[in-house]
Structure formats: C-alpha cells, structure tokens
C-alpha cells in the first residue's frame, strides 16, 4: 500500500473521523461532552487491552532477543529527546528556560493514547508488532522528566528539593497508565493463549468501537484545549509541535533499524518517539516544576502534536516502517 493510500484509508477510518467530529464539535462550541468517569473508564480499557494483548503475544511467541535492546533504545530516546527539544525551543521560541524544559519533558515522554491509536491502525492493517513494545512504552514514560529537571535547574531561582524526594519518584514511576499497562501485560503473559481466548470478545473485538468513543472525547478535549490555550501558541511553537514528532520518529526509525524490529514494531517505536505526553508528565511537573506554565506544553502536545500524529503522523510512520522492513529483509 502506498503512503497516499494509507493516508487516505487512515483519514476515513471511523477512529479518525470520530476524532474529527469531536474536534469540530469543540470548535463549533457544541455542548457535547463525554462524562469524565466514562472517559477514565475508556482510557483504562484501552490501556488494559493493549497491555493484555502485548503480554499474550509474548506468551505465544516467547521473548525474542531484541527485547532488552528495544527497552534500552526506548529509555535512551526518552532521556535524549528532551535535549533536542530544549535546544530547538531555546533557539526558535521565546520560552523561558523553565518553560522550555517543561515542554521538552512532554516531548521526551510518550502518549499512551497515541500508542492506542497506532496499535489500532496496525490491527486494522493486519500488521503484527512485537508484543513487548508495550513494556518499551512503559519504560519511556519517565526518563524524560529526569532530563527536563536537569535542564531546568540553571533557570530556577530555588534551591528546594523539588523532584528529589522519594515520594515524588514513587508517584511518577507508579503513575496509573504505567501500572495499568504493565499489570495487563503481566496478566496477558501469565495467562497466555487460554486467557486471550477468554477475554478476546471484550479486549479485542470491542477495541475499535471503544477507541472511536475515546477519540471522540479526545477530539473534544483537544479542540477545547486549543481554544483555551491558543494565546500560548506562537507560530514558532506550532512549527515545533509538528517538527519535533518527525525528529522523534526519525530517531525511533534509526534505532529500530539497528535493532532489527519488524515493520509493526518499527512503526510503534517511531510513534512512541513522535508522541508527546499529556497525562503522566503534566502531573509530575506540577509537583517538580511548579514555576512552569502548564498551559503551554498541554496546548502543544494535545492541541497540535496529537492531532498531527493521528491524522498524518501514524500513516506516515507505518508507511516508512513498512519500507524499512522491506529493504531490511
């Protein structure tokens, strides 16, 4: 399938169209809402489904050799991406050092919802991916926060212990999405084929429908976030929010080639590196970097980068990953 065909198919998939419906409703100031409790349940369902299927896949095929290399690559990406993001932001925008570090942390970490979207697209296209990519995603959540706190340090007029206490790192490492992903991964790996058969009607067959509902809500949230935060969005920041995912995806592709991942695994690693956090990192930074304006990174990651990845990025990454796999094998 060519990139154009893939992009066209992606744009008319129910998931993307429901996201566009949500986005349009938000821009039109519709009163459409998805109740908060429902949105939380959907998020939990998607993470459990992805985690479980990853674990079941590992149980079925066993742990292949590149697991450790891929986890290490993911951690390295998460540590390094904020350095790149920070350098770009300081060069092309007027953000303060603290705000630039906060944005950089978001772009070094990952978005679990974007992970759900790329796995949904891969499932639709029947492109398999390594099950342990779920563990890689979990490993990529937090290293970016360490880098960002170090980047921010020279710009802070404080000597307090923000970000240094054990309780803080406990909360960050045990954040809900990481625990759900890894917990479901472990359950899938332990119960294997038998467990997969048992929960398939719920975790597999309903996945696309729940993803549609969740992306409708994400469209509403992204649209309203963009409307609320647009005063924080300069042209340079908007360019950053589109260019940074492409840089991340390129780095992810390079590492995937070195490791020898499959087309699906490459697409997932590219997407993870291209995505920006808007759940785990914002919570951590409100504790560790309270001087940073939380609206700036949220507007960028949720209002620009997430829609970009969903509409253009994911088909692009899958297409590139497919070509890489064809050349490599």
């Amino acid at each position: 399938m060519t990139l154009t065909e893939l992009a066209a198919q992606n744009l008319v998939s129910p998931m993307v169209l429901f996201f566009i419906v949500g986005l349009s409703a938000a821009f039109a100031k519709s009163d459409l809402t998805v109740p908060e409790a429902v949105a939380k349940l959907l998020s939990l369902y998607l993470l459990m489904s992805i985690g479980f299927r990853g674990g079941a896949e590992v149980a079925h095929h066993g742990l292949s050799a590149p697991l450790l290399e891929t986890v290490a690559a993911g951690i390295a990406l998460s540590f390094a991406m904020p350095l790149v993001a920070f350098a770009i932001l300081r060069r092309i925008t007027r953000l303060s050092g603290v705000d630039a570090a906060a944005v950089a942390a978001h772009y070094g970490s990952i978005s679990a919802v974007t992970l759900a979207a790329v796995t949904g697209a891969l499932n639709q296209l029947k492109i398999p991916y390594e099950g342990y990519m779920i563990a890689v995603a979990a490993a990529m959540e937090t290293p970016a926060i360490v880098t960002a706190l170090n980047l921010a340090r020279p710009y802070r007029d404080t000597t307090d212990g923000a970000g240094k206490d054990r309780a803080f790192w406990g909360e960050v490492l045990l954040n809900g999405s990481v625990v759900t992903l890894l917990g479901a991964f472990a359950v899938g790996a332990i119960t294997g084929e038998r467990g997969y058969t048992l929960v398939k009607p719920f975790f597999v067959e309903l996945f696309a429908g729940f993803l549609c509902l969740f992306l409708l809500d994400m469209g509403l949230v992204a649209g309203r976030g963009l409307l609320q935060g647009r005063k924080n969005l300069s042209a340079a920041l908007a360019v950053f929010a589109v260019v940074m995912p492409l840089i991340g995806a390129s780095a992810g592709a390079g590492l995937a080639i070195l490791i020898g991942l499959s087309a699906g695994g490459t697409a997932v690693l590219m997407t993870l590196a291209a995505s920006a956090s808007y759940i785990a990192v914002p919570a951590a930074l409100r504790l560790a970097l309270p001087e940073a304006n939380p609206a700036i990174p949220l507007t960028l990651s949720l209002g620009v980068t997430f829609p970009f990845n969903l509409l253009i990025g994911i088909p692009l990454y899958i297409s590139i990953a497919d070509r890489i796999a064809k050349v490599a094998h």
Binding site: A26, T33, M218, L220, K231, A283
Partner: peptide, 15 residues
C-alpha cells in the same frame, strides 16, 4: 491570572 479555567475537558487529574 491566566484567564478562565474549567474542569470540563481537562484531559487528566493534573489539570
């Protein structure tokens, strides 16, 4: 100071 804010539509508890 940063303008209006609403709990509705916040993507996570962080907001």
């Amino acid at each position: 100071q940063s303008g209006t804010w609403s709990a509705d539509g916040q993507v996570s508890d962080a907001g």
